[in-house]
C-alpha cells in the first residue's frame, strides 16, 4: 500500500524556537496515526504544515504525494480537516453549513445522513453560536467529511468534551478507518491514542521521542515485566544477592524485574525459600501511559535525547 503521508526532517522555526525540530515519520494509507504529546509539543504546527496551512522552514512533506504548501488546492479537494478549536459562521445552522460545503466542493452529500453519522440530527437547525463545544466539534467532523476525503486530519478533536461526546467522535474515527480512509489524529489523551491508533508517535518539544504500535513502544521504552509482592523490605534484602535481577522495595511492596518470563519460577522458589511472609503477588507491566510519563519526564530532565530520525 502507498503512503498517505511522508515527512522527512521537518523543521518549523518561530524566531529562535524550533516548534518542530527535525521530525520524520510515515503514515500508511488506510491506517490511523496518532501524534501524542503534551500542550506545546508541536502537534498543531505539524498537522497544519501537512494541511498546507503553514509553511515548513525546512524538510520534505508529502500528503497524497502532493506538496501541501504549493499544491494546496489539489490537496484540499481530497482531505478533510478539523482544526483545533473549530469555529464557523455564528448564525449558520449545521444543515446549512453542510449544504454550503457541498456546493463549494461540488459534492452533494446527504446532509441528514452526515448529521446522523456524527449524531447531530437534533441540532440540524440550531445556529452555530448556540451549539455546545461537543456539538461544534461534531459539525467540524461532518464538514470534514463532505468531500469524501482520503485523509482526515483531526487536531485534538475531543479536548474538553464530555465522555459521551468523546465516545461519539471515537466511533466516527473508527468508521473512517473501516472505510479505508487514513486518519492523522493528534491528542494529549493516552487512552485515545491507545484505543484508536495503529501507530503512535510521542512528540515533545518538537521532537519525536518514541514511535511505533503501542506494544512496540512499550517493549522499546517500558521497563521489563515485574513480579510484585506485598511484603516487608526484608524480602528484597533476601532476594537481591541470590537472583541477579533488579529488586526494589517501597510502600510495603517488593518488585522484581524479570529478564525473561522463565525467571518468574526462580523468583517464586526463592521467595518460598526465604521464609519472609508475604500477603499477595501480581505481575505488573508498563502501560503506554507509564512510558509516556517517563519519557516526557526524562526529556524535561535532559536525561533523554530524541530518538534517531528515521
Amino acid at each position: 500500500m502507498a503512503d498517505a503521508i511522508e515527512v522527512r526532517h521537518l523543521v518549523k522555526r518561530y524566531g529562535n524556537l524550533a516548534a518542530v525540530d527535525d521530525v520524520s515519520f510515515t503514515v500508511r494509507a488506510g491506517t490511523v496515526f496518532s501524534f501524542l504529546g503534551p500542550n506545546g509539543a508541536g502537534k498543531t504546527t505539524t498537522v497544519e504544515i501537512l494541511e498546507g496551512l503553514r509553511r515548513a522552514t525546512s524538510g520534505e512533506v508529502r500528503a497524497l504525494g502532493l506538496d501541501p504548501w504549493t499544491e494546496a488546492a489539489a490537496l484540499h479537494r481530497r482531505v478533510g480537516v478539523i482544526p483545533q478549536d473549530f469555529r464557523f459562521f455564528e448564525k449558520i445552522t449545521p444543515r446549512e453549513a453542510i449544504e454550503y460545503y457541498g456546493s463549494l466542493f461540488g459534492h452533494r452529500p446527504h446532509p441528514d445522513e452526515l448529521l446522523a453519522r456524527v449524531q447531530l440530527e437534533d441540532k440540524a437547525h440550531s445556529r452555530f453560536d448556540t451549539l455546545s463545544g461537543g456539538q461544534k466539534q461534531k459539525l467540524g467532523l461532518a464538514l470534514a467529511l463532505t468531500n469524501d476525503p482520503e485523509i482526515c486530519f483531526l487536531d485534538e478533536p475531543t479536548t474538553g468534551l464530555d465522555p459521551t461526546a468523546r465516545r461519539a467522535i471515537w466511533d466516527v474515527i473508527r468508521s473512517l478507518k473501516s472505510e479505508g480512509r487514513s486518519v492523522f489524529l493528534t491528542t494529549h489523551y493516552l487512552e485515545e491514542a491507545e484505543l484508536l491508533a495503529d501507530r503512535v508517535a510521542i512528540i515533545h518539544h518538537g521532537r519525536i521521542i518514541a514511535e511505533g504500535t503501542p506494544p512496540e513502544i512499550i517493549a522499546a521504552h517500558g521497563r521489563p515485566e515485574r513480579l510484585r509482592f506485598a511484603a516487608a523490605p526484608a524480602l528484597a534484602d533476601y532476594l537481591r544477592p541470590r537472583l541477579g535481577l533488579a529488586v526494589s522495595a517501597a510502600d510495603g511492596r517488593v518488585e522484581v524485574e524479570l529478564g525473561a518470563p522463565s525467571d518468574a519460577l526462580r523468583v517464586l522458589s526463592a521467595v518460598a525459600a526465604s521464609g519472609v511472609p508475604w500477603a499477595s503477588f501480581a505481575t505488573a507491566q508498563d502501560t503506554l501511559e507509564d512510558v509516556f510519563v517517563r519519557l516526557v519526564g526524562q526529556m524535561d530532565d535532559g536525561t533523554l535525547k530524541a530518538e534517531g530520525t528515521t
Binding site: 494541511e51 496551512l53 494546496a72 488546492a73 484540499h76 479537494r77 480537516v81 482544526p83 478549536d85 473549530f86 469555529r87 464557523f88 459562521f89 460545503y101 463549494l104 466542493f105 461540488g106
Partner: peptide, 13 residues
Amino acid sequence: KEGIFRQLSLTPL
C-alpha cells in the same frame, strides 16, 4: 482572528 478564513482556505472557494 477567528480562523474562519483558514477554514475557508481548506475549501475550493
